[in-house]
Design a protein around this nucleic acid. Structure first.
Lengths: 208, 208, 208, 208
DNA sequence: GATGAATGAGGGTTCATTCAT
DNA sequence: TATGAATGAACCCTCATTCAT
């Protein structure tokens, strides 16, 4: 009569969700090696053996998380429109949204890359292909005179890093921009506007 | 009688340099927690107790290293000229040079920021001040009509992240750009040119 | 309503049999300590708690099994005949049959002896008595001149170990006898014949 | 000034010897899985981490021990003489000596075989070859009429198991032979004599 | 009867650091 | 200075068993 446990399925799902949340927080803060199952368990309100009842191991949990992280980025570069300004603008917005809403997720990825990206090996082929598709689209725009001849790879990596920055280096941002003072605040809307302006102008894309 | 040990001072310096070099490599690859003193000692050609004879502790060594890392970035934004294009271009080049030549140093910093930047606390005030100076300079350029009204903070962070990216995400770059194929290669000169073009145009700075 | 469960008694017996079979296989392969209840449960098609519903504990299950193993050896040395050759020959055949047909059972016993035989304590008195009876019979044969004066204990232990070997050391046998080649194969009939010839001749027992 | 530790080399060797002795005792009693490093460490008078300072791991230690066990058996079957009775008699004596003097070592091997012998894989080829040599020698004796036509493999395995028995089943022997009473005692000399008589007569080898 | 969940103990191993020499 | 040795804590994981449903 301690805990009702009426619906086992639901309970399991709830616990698993708690584990995932805890793991994201821990991995994001301390990395794969730096995170102890102890910490994940504690944060999820479980004991260590309990945790192992639900997951297979630390690495497996990490990889599963990494997979869900990767899937979050799919389809962000939506080439539905023929307007370069709209496509790139939407891309920037999506990435900034993700950086503001789920910064931990971004950090897990950055950390993994910093660690050598060995757990990402299985994702590279697909990522490579998707990158190539984007490159082709941008080259098409250039060919049609819709934008200046910018190296597509450099452009894509620039957008990636500029937006990722607001997730990974949130601390840095907060510290460098007169904290607690009426100075600049990383306001999401203003930021998106500024980044778009900077980049679209840089590409020579005319905006309405 | 094994080793002459003629000049203790010199010897000590040489060993300390070896330790620093080894530590940079290890910390850069595995982070603070992920690095074992064993690994540092081995890479520096010492035994573990030997290492502890020269350093105070892992954390202390790390902090000392972080300090030297930070000093590398001082003076990169050289406002000696009145030409915004030259100042920003030089800044970009310096950062890219550093990213290509000392990527480990960059990675240690990024990792620290990812970890929360607690060991950077003492550096924030100075960094903040230097950032403010740069912001003022840029605002001056804007006031004098030398460039479009771009948010200086966003601009600085963009340059920072875009350049840093080539150090931190070297793996990603290599993997995403059709490796081993005649595709795009991260050539330093071309890269600097592209980044300058993109950013200066984005700021509305006319280049000769 | 999932499973009919028509005859609970029968079902229980069937499950218990499955457990015993699974346990024999596991204990025989991995020993008492090396076997996990998990493994037994899995092999018997049960969950761990289910298994614990039917058994009292791992050790208890083991002891119960050991008991049934011991009973298999009763009456193998059948002194019904007055012909030493026949009695010993039948004994050898029974033991080889058991070694070939139920090697796991043999192995559980050998393992237990290797472990110190603490769980066999209750069986020793009876075994001792049965051994003494056999010794007396053999001494009788010797007294009547039916065989050479061989130490009965040594003879019995020799037969025991020589036959047991083909159960316990099946791997060794297979590996040492040119595997996969047209060399010697552990053929049961030939083996019994050879062992009988060797031993009976060794005892100076004339065979028809 | 706690412990002299004057000669590091010597000390290390002494500790390693203690570890090996402890490990033999433990592995012999509880097998690879059943033995805890804790137990080995305790028996050797060390703490667990201390133990790991000297060995690489439990499995490695086990394999090293197994290797030394195997080498103990090399050259026991000394075919220096042309007298079958002497060769086999010496073989039996060597094996019985080893069974009485180092029973634990024998048990480690038997246990390994019982476990499937996976750690012995690398030894099989050599063992196979040595077995073949012995088989050839015995076949030579038979061809020259020095002994009856006994299957050499069966003979060798019989000798092996009969002698091994006194190491592996020491408990059984002690329990089955009226313990504490003036009955039969496993006296080494008598045992060797009995076994030789039994086997040589079984092979039809005339002894002086 | 069967199932999800919990628990406490222990297993193997690695680590940062310090001692005594 | 430099080395063998020690130490105590922590880490990841598995196990046998039991509880409540």
């Amino acid at each position: 009569m301690k805990t009702p446990t009426r619906k086992p399925r639901e309970n399991r799902e709830r616990i698993l969700a708690a584990i995932r949340e805890a793991a994201i927080a821990e991995f994001s803060q301390n990395g794969l090696k730096g995170t102890s199952t102890q910490a994940i368990a504690a944060r999820a309100g479980l004991t260590k053996p309990q945790l192992h009842y639900y997951i297979k191991g630390k690495e497996e949990l990490y990889e599963e998380l990494l997979l869900s992280v990767m899937s979050d980025w799919k389809g962000m570069f939506d080439a539905g429109s023929t307007d370069p300004g709209k496509v790139l603008g939407d891309y920037i917005r999506s990435k900034i949204d993700q950086a503001f809403d789920k910064p931990e997720v971004s950090r897990i990825f950055t950390r993994e890359v910093l660690d050598g990206g060995h757990n990402l090996e299985k994702f590279w082929p697909e990522s490579r292909q998707r990158t190539q598709e984007k490159v082709n689209i941008i080259n098409g725009w250039i060919a049609r005179g819709l934008m200046k001849p910018v190296d597509p790879h450099v452009l894509l990596m620039s957008i990636w890093s500029m937006t990722q920055f607001y997730a990974d280096s949130a601390v840095q941002v907060r510290q460098l921009v007169s904290p607690g003072q009426p100075g600049w605040q990383p306001d999401r809307e203003a930021l998106v506007r500024e980044l778009c302006a900077l980049l679209l102008r840089g590409c020579g894309i005319r905006t309405p």
